[in-house]
Design a binder for these strands. Structure first.
Length: 420
RNA sequence: GGAGGAUUCGCAUAGCGGCCGAGUGCGCACGCUUGGAAAGCGUGUAUAGGGAAACCUAUCGAGGGUUCAAAUCCCUCAUCCUCCGCCA
């Protein structure tokens, strides 16, 4: 949630932000009105309440007839307090609901527009020219079959569409990617974490995944718990309701991620680009708000380092305002070159959420002037299936074998994956 | 799944329905003391909301209820601990 003070002092800023994000600017004015009603209701309640507290005290001290008389008054007041309290609770709830609908204030540096209006920041590496090399590249599904690394047919048989098995070299590739990711994260100062993937509603709500994104979240009705779509959820909620003493804190969470992928029928139906379950190493930072922008750059650098180590050509895009999640003020995506699609596809993503998530989750830090909400940022280090796609397709040879990136060799134990 | 016990200010604890936003010890901060330190002594030490401010209001795991008045009584829930059963 945003800072109410900003809203009171500069409503136009919030209106503009809502507009470029594709949100509803009218909510801003509804909230301003609701907030005024709220404050009036609070004052009214507190005034009567103070009166009641004072009267109650005198009742305790009084005796006999005097007490009986005071009790009459007190009863009357008690009823008024109850009514005023109900009014206050109602006003607060209404204002809060509106507040939750306001997205984070857009970073003025972010490009304005929809999904197609991203700005390419840079290209790293050069896609291979397979024509020049004299063969037609196979897609990751075919390569996965040849190598006996990916089995989507049995995945569908057992678990339905968008499911898969990683077998043999595919499974080993995952372990190698994860180990390399965790090792480099630890070296960079991250604390490795294996978080729960089943979380209670408060964690899901606090991280903002029960809003517009709710349809993509698996919910286990019987136990009222959610399967997380990213370890961002348990990592952010880790410090819920806490005051942090030392910043920054950086975690690298390794977890399975679950996504319903509702509303993506017909999109990426082949292979393992878009699946219901995958494993991912996610970076998550708690940091002072004034350092958030610099941290965002650092997270991006770590993402780039990983892709460079995988020897994959990619580009970095600055995602446009209308395509940001509600809590991000700015988002950078790294898109890997996928030869058989002749396109760059998102493999990692990093968002600066400033204090937006921390306000909801009540995560603060202390400085000379008291406690303040921290800034939170997240970034993908490696999302396993998409990275496997990129590695197989970019490093394939004419015979269907695949060269293993040098960085992964110590973890995988071989230099080349050979067709079985 | 069953049976008990617990949850109070960073930690440990005290707490009779009104004198309890809450005592004590430890810790922490500042001051005195000292050549310096320790000890000792003194002072202070939660969070949030409203208000220009004085100040007021709320919070004793959470939510309801009883009452003029709840940390204290009642109900529901959550979490932790112990024991029994089952189990990777």
């Amino acid at each position: 949630m945003i800072d109410l003070k900003v809203l009171r002092e500069n409503p136009e800023l919030v209106r503009q932000s809502q507009k470029v994000r594709g949100g509803d600017p009218a909510v801003v004015d509804q909230l301003i009105a609701a907030d005024e009603i709220r404050r009036a209701a609070v004052t009214e309640f507190e005034t009567i309440r103070a009166e009641q507290n004072a009267l109650s005290k005198s009742v305790g001290a009084a005796k006999g007839d005097e007490k009986t008389a005071l009790l009459e008054n007190a009863k009357e007041l008690a009823a008024q307090v109850k009514a005023a309290d109900a009014k206050r609770a109602d006003a607060e709830e209404k204002a809060h609901q509106l507040l939750l609908q306001i997205q984070n204030l857009i970073d003025p540096a972010a490009p304005i527009g929809g999904e197609e209006d991203f700005v390419v920041l840079e290209h790293v590496g050069t896609p291979r020219d397979f024509t020049k090399e004299g063969f037609e590249p196979k897609d990751h599904v075919d390569l996965g079959k040849i190598l006996k690394a990916i089995d989507t047919e049995r995945g569908a048989k057992v678990a339905g569409s968008r499911s898969y098995y990683l077998t043999g070299p595919g499974a080993l590739l995952e372990f190698a990617l994860v180990q390399y990711a965790i090792a480099s994260a630890v070296k960079a100062g991250f604390i490795p974490v294996i978080p729960p993937v089943l979380v209670r509603p408060a964690a899901m709500e606090g991280t903002g995944f029960l809003g517009q994104a709710a349809e993509n979240v698996y919910h286990l009705e019987e136990d009222d718990v959610y399967l997380v779509g990213t370890s961002e959820v348990p990592l952010a909620a880790f410090h819920m309701d806490e005051i942090l003493d030392e910043l920054p804190i950086r975690y690298a969470g390794y977890s399975s991620c679950f996504r319903r992928e509702a509303g993506t029928y017909g999109k990426d139906t082949r292979g393992i680009i878009r699946v219901h379950q995958f494993d991912k190493v996610e970076m998550f930072s708690f940091i002072k708000p004034e350092d958030a922008a610099a941290e965002h750059k650092r997270l991006l650098e770590w993402e780039k380092d990983f892709l460079k180590a995988m020897e994959i050509p990619f580009r970095v895009i600055d995602v446009a305002s209308g395509d940001l999640g509600a809590s991000a003020i700015r988002k950078f995506d790294c898109e890997a070159w996928i030869p058989t699609q002749n396109a760059y596809r998102e493999v990692t993503s990093t968002s600066n959420c400033t204090e937006f998530q921390a306000r909801r989750l009540n995560i603060r830090y202390r400085d000379e002037n008291g406690t303040k909400p921290v800034a939170t940022l997240n970034g993908t280090l490696v999302a396993v299936p998409r990275m496997i796609v990129a590695i197989l397709e970019n490093h394939q040879n004419a015979d269907g074998s695949v060269n293993v990136p040098v960085a992964l060799r110590p973890f995988l134990g071989v230099d080349t994956l050979i067709p079985a």
